[in-house]
Design a protein around this nucleic acid. Sequence first.
DNA 1: AATGGACATAGATAAATGTCAATGTGTTAG
DNA 2: CTAACACATTGACATTTATCTATGTCCATT
Lengths: 98, 98
Amino acid sequence: MSKNYGEYAMFMKALADETRVKIFDMLCEGELCACKILEDFKITQPTLSYHMKILCDSGLVNGRRDGVWMKYSINENGLNSLKNLFDNIGHKIVKCNK
Amino acid sequence: MSKNYGEYAMFMKALADETRVKIFDMLCEGELCACKILEDFKITQPTLSYHMKILCDSGLVNGRRDGVWMKYSINENGLNSLKNLFDNIGHKIVKCNK
DNA sequence: AATGGACATAGATAAATGTCAATGTGTTAG
DNA sequence: CTAACACATTGACATTTATCTATGTCCATT
């Protein structure tokens, strides 16, 4: 089974930004409205929108409209893929430290 | 205990490139010479050197001279930090899926 | 229908990134 | 000591990224 390093890199790239990894962390606590997320950062609304698009495109985050608001949450499918990736590396760590 | 999102992002950034994540994966199998790594990619030697520097600076990889050769291997300290980061996210996954 | 609020998109831009060719630095062999 | 080899550094360059302002779109309220 050949490994999909491109997919690995894509997940990493989505989280390779301090703003995005913090948003990801916040969403792990539960669904959040974009305007609520925005309050925690010193960025403009379009910039947040840009980051949310990257997180959603990566498959790690899910967005849904709720009237006027956009509610973002962790996407379980993406999360499982990420977890598999982590388990994979975790396995290697054990191997390396043997 | 406040989280160091900058450190999170730094590790992710080191692996947010298909070439580097593949090198990281190769090194998990054991120490490798730069010239041996180079054989697996369609990049020039200076480009590999550039990537190796990023991996080493991140603390995930260690380099040592062995005569004319540079031998690279996984750095256990960096690996443990990465593993802690993963465990942290893994914990959240469980929390999210509860 | 008109207004206003929440978010997305477009365009511009400065900074960071990945790549190469050319060159520099160490180390070993002869 | 010199030549050859392995690797690092430098400078140049094209691409990507993160950010903003300005504007567009969608929805709810009036």
